[in-house]
């Protein structure tokens, strides 16, 4: 009896170790071929694509007129760092561009790090679109890829220490980002210039309408101060003459230091606020705590940094989320129209 058990154990251990070796070697082989492929494509296409002049991170020149020939059967393959960048590129590229997103849906992009597999995939892309302003700190880890920085040539103060990356919440700045996207798509795929241009015009018209709607909705408001969750709405507030206060700093962390909670409570009482904002992708308890203290309500003011799968199914996009924000802001600022 004992010997049978021993034998079975031996066979089991032998089998599982064989399986392990097999798995390991196959995954290694996969990785090696993937890396080789990425190197090869980079090598053969170096004449076509604008290459970064200096590693680690190069930037495509928006005004550069490099001619690229590309068949329609092989659409442009680009990566975008996180949701708003994805949405903007998709709105201009539409069917002619294969757009992927690096930070998965529903994930908080501030502390994101790409996985090894993603880095390999990224090297196969024709271009990577990023928001810039230091938001994608991991971008410096990538070599030999074309990076399009959408904050390029934007009239913003670029602080060397901490700059505010939340450009996409100001529709007027988004128009400039859209221009950057259009220029790079035209460079990468000049055959479809007309197509991209039409989409661009459509997109900027929508942005203009959003801008007008925000101005008219916020024309008659009792308040001009609001308490956001983290400092995402600086550019937005500047554009529309509002004052942003926030419970958190520039990045949404879990723990607020106790004195900051108290400051938010005192400030809300002083300013007569009765709405505390939370975000769609965060622990609402911090905003709840402040709201309970001032007998106020908690509403969502989305920094539109990510989109959940449910929202995606409901066909939500940048615009619908901006209008949701606008409706909640109207309540918070006690606007009448």
């Amino acid at each position: 009896m004992k010997s049978i058990v021993k034998g079975m154990l031996f066979i089991f251990i032998l089998g599982s170790s064989m399986l392990l070796i097999l798995l390991l070697s196959s995954s290694l082989a996969l990785k090696v071929t993937a890396i080789n492929e990425s190197l090869n494509t980079n090598g053969s296409e170096s004449a076509n694509i604008v290459k970064p002049s200096s590693p680690p991170a190069g930037y495509i020149d928006s005004g550069n007129n490099n001619e690229v020939t590309r068949s329609n059967a092989n659409p442009l393959k680009v990566f975008t760092s996180f949701y708003p960048v994805y949405d903007f590129v998709k709105k201009i590229g539409k069917d002619k561009v294969d757009v992927s997103i690096i930070v998965p849906n529903g994930m908080e992009p501030h502390d994101f790090e790409p996985t090894a597999k993603q880095i390999i995939d990224l090297q196969k892309a024709d271009a990577i679109f990023v928001n810039g302003m230091g938001f994608e700190s991991w971008i410096n880890k990538l070599n030999n890829v074309t990076i399009v920085d959408l904050s390029r040539d934007l009239p913003l103060e670029k602080n060397t220490q901490i700059s505010n990356p939340h450009i996409w919440l100001d529709p007027i700045l988004v128009k400039l980002q859209a221009k950057n996207i259009l220029n790079s798509l035209n460079n990468l795929d000049p055959q479809n210039k007309l197509y991209y241009n039409n989409n661009y015009v459509q997109f900027t018209n929508q942005l203009d309408k959003l801008n007008v709607d925000i101005i008219s909705s916020l024309a008659n408001c009792k308040l001009h101060d609001f308490l956001s969750f983290h400092d995402a709405f600086g550019y937005f507030a500047n554009r529309y003459g509002l004052v942003q206060h926030s419970i958190q700093g520039l990045s949404p962390e879990t723990e607020a230091p106790p004195q900051k909670i108290r400051e938010s409570i005192d400030l809300s009482k002083q300013l007569g606020l009765d709405v505390v904002f939370t975000e769609d992708n965060t622990d609402p308890r911090l905003s709840d705590t402040v709201a309970q203290e001032i007998n106020g309500q908690v509403l969502t003011l989305s920094p539109i940094e990510t989109i959940s799968d449910e929202e995606k199914q409901m066909n939500k996009d940048y615009f619908s989320k901006m209008y949701d924000n606008l409706n909640n802001l109207k309540i918070a600022l006690k606007c009448t129209n």
Binding site: P104, N105, G106, M107, E108, D111, P252, T254, N281, T282, D283, R285
Partner: peptide, 9 residues
């Protein structure tokens, strides 16, 4: 999908 705010809290 990875570490989220929820988990750290």
């Amino acid at each position: 999908g990875g570490f989220s705010i929820d988990i750290t809290s």
